[in-house]
């Protein structure tokens, strides 16, 4: 009697498993997309919020999803800590900043490499409303940290995640502060199932008025991390895709 019960239980379990497997298989694409989105959101940090940023004309805007593992850090960031700049399609960041502000050049080599993780935010643009034709946009950070404290802070900008084989992502990096050093690192995922590969290692020094550009195709996702002190915004990052 006991044996029959056990056999019946086994058969029911097997049927259950097969049915569940078939069910999951039938909607595998959607499941993958959903889990990818979850993964991207998780990468930003434990705590998250949306911020809408307008350019000076108030005609263009983007919405960021910004996150951090430290709620006190996330609380410090708001729309006033970002500038949305609209530039001509063919204009470089270097040309844009040269026209805005001419700085002098005082550089040194960087041999420091570090992994500190205090004060880090991650963000990605989730919606945009750019009305100007023939123009592109980039965000400039104005970090909210106290200038007096003597530790480092970090931020990471993520591109969109796109699994198409033609998805091209370019990270343009520009150094724009003569007095405060800026460091960055670039990584990308070729496919949705790949791990991150390093394009520019942490921490690569960017000098004043220096431009660097990294392009990858196919590129599922790219991230650019920067390291700074206080209110320093010496590293400007634009992700084109």
């Amino acid at each position: 009697m006991k044996n029959i019960k056990t056999k019946l239980l086994t058969i029911v379990s097997v049927i259950g498993l097969v049915t569940t497997a078939l069910l999951f298989n039938s909607c595998s694409d959607e499941a993958t997309i959903e889990s990818d989105e979850n993964r991207i959101v998780q990468e930003l940090g434990e705590f998250k919020k949306e911020i809408e940023i307008f350019d000076k004309s108030k005609e263009n805007s983007v919405v960021l999803l910004i996150g951090s593992n430290d709620i006190s850090v996330l609380n410090m960031w708001s729309a006033k800590n970002f500038d949305l700049n609209i530039i001509d399609e063919n204009q470089s960041l270097e040309d844009f900043f040269k026209s805005v502000n001419k700085g002098n050049n005082r550089n040194a080599t960087n041999e420091d490499s570090s992994e500190e993780v205090a004060a880090e935010i991650g963000y990605t643009i989730i919606r945009k409303n750019i009305n100007a034709s023939g123009k592109r946009y980039f965000l400039q950070e104005n970090p909210p940290y106290n200038e007096d404290v003597r530790g480092w802070s970090y931020s990471t900008l993520y591109s969109d995640a796109d699994a198409s084989s033609t998805h091209t992502v370019t990270a343009n990096i520009y150094g724009r502060n003569a007095w405060k050093r800026g460091y960055f690192g670039v990584q990308y995922k070729k496919y949705s199932y790949s791990g991150y590969s390093t394009i520019a290692s942490e921490w690569t020094r960017i000098k004043n008025n220096e431009s660097k550009s990294y392009t990858r195709t196919p590129c599922y996702k790219m991230k650019v991390r920067r390291k700074y002190k206080g209110t320093n915004n010496s590293v400007v990052i634009e992700i084109e895709e």
Partner: peptide, 21 residues
């Protein structure tokens, strides 16, 4: 102070550096 592995404000251990450490 460099690469001091210590309790961060997240409640987890991690790196904190600079002269502050």
């Amino acid at each position: 102070g460099d690469k001091s592995y210590t309790l961060l404000n997240t409640g987890k251990y991690g790196f904190f550096g600079g002269t502050s450490a």
